[in-house]
Amino acid sequence: MTPDTTGGEITIASNDDVVRVRQLVRTAAAAAGLSLVDQTKIVTAASELARNTLIHGGGGSARVESAARAGRRPGVRITFTDDGPGIPDVDQALTEGWTSGGGLGLGLPGARRLVDEFELRTEPGAGTTVTVTKWPR
C-alpha cells in the first residue's frame, strides 16, 4: 500500500519508527474528520501499541487504513503485527498495572480504553496482532 493521507504501512524496527507511526495516524485521523480529542486518543493509543510491537514483539509493522461501516462516515483502523513470542496470558496482559518488565503496565489496557474497537490475536510462538478502530462522532 502506498502512503497517502488516509493510510499506509510502516515497518517498526526502531524508536524513530514509533514517531513515524504517530505522524501517519495523526494525518489519517485528521483526514477522517475525528475531533481533536479523538485524534489525540488514537495517536496516543497507536504510540503505546507501536512501542509494544518494538519492545515485546521484537519489531513488526503498523498498517493504517480507512475503516468502513454501513451508513456511517469511515473511521481509522490500525493493525499492529509482529512475529515475536506472542502473549502467553492475554487476560493478564490486559490487566491494569501488570507489566512484563520495565513499563507501567498501561500499554494494552490503556490503549484499549482510548479506542472504540480493540481486537487482540496472539498465540505463544506465533506473534501478536492488535487491531484498533476509532469512529468519527
Partner: peptide, 14 residues
C-alpha cells in the same frame, strides 16, 4: 498541557 492531552492522559490511566 493541551486540553486534549490532559483528557487522553487521564483515560490512559496516567
Amino acid at each position: 498541557m493541551r486540553p486534549a492531552v490532559a483528557i487522553t492522559l487521564v483515560e490512559l490511566g496516567l
